[in-house]
């Protein structure tokens, strides 16, 4: 009897893992083919007392068919970091390649991408939250279905395969129509809820849906950061040279 219970549990676990992976792969396939994307990003950082500061960036992403995407973030505000650029060549399983252009020194600096927990511009977003979300970088467990704010979503738990990840697990609520998250719960290494990201203001670009707003709340510190996209354009054709380290200077 015990053997049968264990066997059923194992078969059920594998089925949930397979189902989770299958959903995430379909979502990735659905989102493939956007070619390139450009946008302006505005981020508002709110502390526990409600004080606000603003950050601004430009973003360019080039889709790479057989590997992770390439991206450049150009910092526009605050003034002291204006012109700083971060170039990322993401990979499906290996660590991403990253370079930072420091305009004050005119220097392109190679940096490691292992600091997943680092805060992005002092916000509640970590580099891990904003980095590439390749399917291959996680393991999945299907947890069921749920309605969130009137929308139907799959609930999938994912765990990073990267030992440097700051999270014990993430619980993703993936919208069935948008094929993108409505909400992600981030749990720390002690498996306590750390942050909740809510994705909203979805807009359609051709067949693709993109959230125009992410609100990241840190439930432990009560701080939050709101990231909004403006002037987003998809199907942008960039050349490889646009994502070359030597072109960061201009």
């Amino acid at each position: 009897m015990n053997f049968l219970v264990i066997l059923l549990f194992l078969v059920s676990s594998q089925a949930h893992a397979d189902r989770g992976l299958e959903i995430m792969k379909k979502a990735e396939e659905f989102n493939n083919g956007f070619v390139g994307e450009s946008s302006t990003m505005e981020m508002v950082l709110v502390n526990a007392h409600g004080d606000k500061v603003e950050r601004k960036m430009n973003s360019k992403v080039q889709e790479v068919s057989d590997d992770g995407d390439k991206s450049i973030i150009t910092f526009l505000w605050p003034a002291d970091v204006k012109g700083t650029k971060m170039l990322t060549w993401s990979h499906k399983t290996e660590n991403d390649d990253q370079w930072l252009y420091l305009p004050a020194l005119k220097r392109v600096k190679r940096i490691t991408s292992t600091n997943k927990t680092g805060s992005f511009m002092g916000s509640e977003f970590s580099y891990e939250d904003l980095g590439s979300q390749e399917v291959e970088k996680y393991t999945y467990t299907f947890k069921g279905e749920k309605d969130i704010k009137g929308r139907k979503a799959w609930v999938i738990e994912r765990k990073s395969t990267d030992k440097n990840s700051g999270y014990g697990k993430q619980v993703v609520h993936l919208d069935k129509e948008y094929q993108n998250p409505l909400q992600i719960g981030y749990f720390d290494r002690k498996m306590e809820l750390l942050k909740v990201a809510e994705f909203s203001n979805y807009k359609k670009y051709g067949k693709y849906w993109r959230a125009s707003k992410i609100e990241m709340k840190n439930v432990q510190t009560k701080k939050k950061s709101i990231l909004e996209w403006k002037n987003r354009k998809l199907n942008q054709k960039f050349s490889d040279a646009d994502f070359n380290q030597n072109r960061l200077k201009m």
């Binding site: 940096i111 490691t112 292992t114 600091n115 997943k116 927990t117 680092g118 805060s119 970590s126 440097n164 700051g166 720390d188």
Partner: peptide
């Protein structure tokens, strides 16, 4: 050698 801290600093 880069050391990331849980606080978000490095």
């Amino acid at each position: 050698y880069l050391i990331g801290h849980r606080s978000g600093s490095e």
